[in-house]
């Protein structure tokens, strides 16, 4: 476990070093005033921070990872609620969402209590939050308000919590190694985002969703998903999967990640914003960075649970 962790950290750091070096070269050629290069540098710098935070959480173990994703959920929920139409009448429902639902969800994830965390938000929060919203008797936009609040919880808390939930899977001959499942998911999905961007910049011609996300191209999509899936296949040795299984799972999660990006982009366009937030320089908000993980994590979790977990 520790040997693997150090090798993987070494690989990730080398990739970051190469990216930083390449960005410096581009800066010399393209000039420091080039906005694309400035954004690229900001993105890479933010990756250094994100990798450092993830590494610290991994070293701290399962509790560290659960706490890290709980914090991510808090930040994502803060961003999502900002764009909703929730009113003062929803204040109790939203207070409960942030200060009761979110901590309970992560507590259950930390305890590995599948029977609770897999239904708490889709069933209990789903039914109880609109009840709290009726208390003030304000009916204006009621369905819009409660739907948006439920969506905020599903996206920012429920889906995100399925990343640390991978820790509670019981896979034969894989005890104590579940952190690598998280590593696998995040590295494959995030590198797919990066590779789609790179392939798109290099070869991109045919726009794939001009209304939702004008920068996404067919060439970027295919190149990104295939190369990220090959990377996933190459990481099979840290997973309970065979090479082929690792490739197939990577295809599924990168595709989900891509589609998730489109969905979240549609929401942003409708709300008239470019980014969900501003806290991750060059990337935007937490949801901007997490959107593909949000859509792939629950699916990855359930496929692995269905085929590999002892239950």
């Amino acid at each position: 476990m520790n040997g693997h962790f150090i090798i993987l950290l070494g690989i990730v750091l080398s990739v970051l070093l190469i990216a930083t070096g390449a960005a410096q070269l581009l800066k010399r050629r393209g000039g420091p005033d080039n906005l694309t290069i400035q954004n690229l540098t900001a993105r890479i710098n933010a990756w250094w921070v994100m990798v450092a935070v993830m590494a610290i959480a991994f070293v701290a173990g399962p509790t560290g990872v659960v706490v890290l994703f709980a914090i991510c959920s808090f930040a994502a929920l803060r961003e999502f609620l900002t764009l909703t139409n929730t009113a003062a009448a929803d204040h109790w429902a939203l207070t409960a969402a942030v200060f009761i639902v979110l901590p309970l969800q992560y507590l259950a994830v930390g305890m590995g209590w599948y029977g609770f965390y897999s239904i708490f938000i889709p069933v209990y929060a789903f039914l109880l939050m609109p009840i709290l919203s009726t208390l003030r008797g304000q009916v204006e936009n009621f369905l819009i308000r409660v739907s948006e609040a439920q969506w905020a919880l599903m996206i920012a808390v429920f889906c995100v919590s399925h990343v640390p939930a991978l820790l509670s899977l019981k896979i034969p001959d894989y005890e104590g190694k579940n952190l690598f499942l998280i590593f696998f998911l995040i590295v494959v999905v995030q590198s797919s985002d990066v590779l789609q961007y790179v392939w798109g910049k290099l070869l991109g011609r045919r726009k794939i969703a001009p209304n939702l996300s004008p920068s996404k191209t067919l060439e970027g999509l295919l190149g990104g998903i295939l190369s990220a899936s090959l990377l996933g296949a190459a990481l099979f040795w840290i997973t309970p999967f065979s090479v082929l299984q690792a490739f197939a799972l990577s295809l599924v999660i990168t595709l989900m990640g891509f589609l998730g990006g489109l969905v979240m982009s549609a929401i942003k366009r409708d709300r008239g914003v470019k980014d969900w937030g501003h806290l991750i320089a060059g990337h935007g908000g937490f949801i901007d960075r997490l959107d593909s993980v949000i859509f792939s994590a629950p699916i990855f979790f359930h496929i692995v649970r269905f085929y590999w977990d002892l239950h």
């Binding site: 961003e79 609620l81 900002t82 003062a88 939203l94 207070t95 200060f99 501003h278």
Partner: peptide
Amino acid sequence: GALVPIPLI
């Protein structure tokens, strides 16, 4: 009249 703030940007 709210007692607790909810997080919003």
